[in-house]
Amino acid sequence: MAKLHISTTINGEPTEYLCAPDETMLDVLRNGLGLTGSKEGCGSGDCGACSITMDGRLVCACLVLAAEAEGSEIETIEGMADGEALHPLQQKFLEMAALQCGICTPGMLVAAKSLLEQNPNPTETEVRYWLAGNLCRCTGYDKIIRAVMDTAADMRGAA
């Protein structure tokens, strides 16, 4: 199967890669580009551990074909902090112990950031439904939801 040549932008950097027509975006990120922050928990779009944004839209990288990314802007967990300066969500997750094992954390953070970009003042219910596609088996979600709500309040205060 001939490989396809794809030009895209990942975390602000122009990126080119070759991929098979049936390869997922997640496989290319993890195995081709070494961006292993996106995790594969299921490969079927049910756990959200591979959450990324494509042109601002929150997607599961395991459900996107790598070939679909031609010309698009992709953001992954690796692009969330600004050097050593963590994004407020990342900082809050640490301060509030909103992670235990940490495997769902990258996807959770990418999804939460996407929520706050669209809705800077979400209710608890809105946060819970937005993150319903991101499974966490460790925390029972309590501290994750609180961390997102707190970050939203902080960011509104700072804005």
Binding site: T36, S38, E78, L94, A97
Partner: peptide, 23 residues
């Protein structure tokens, strides 16, 4: 005290190496 975990930053930035992340 609710200190920040020593392995915190790698876990929130995606750089922590889980089993499938090593090649």
């Amino acid at each position: 005290q609710n200190t920040i975990r020593p392995d915190g930053a790698p876990k929130v930035t995606g750089s922590a190496a889980f089993a499938a992340d090593t090649n």
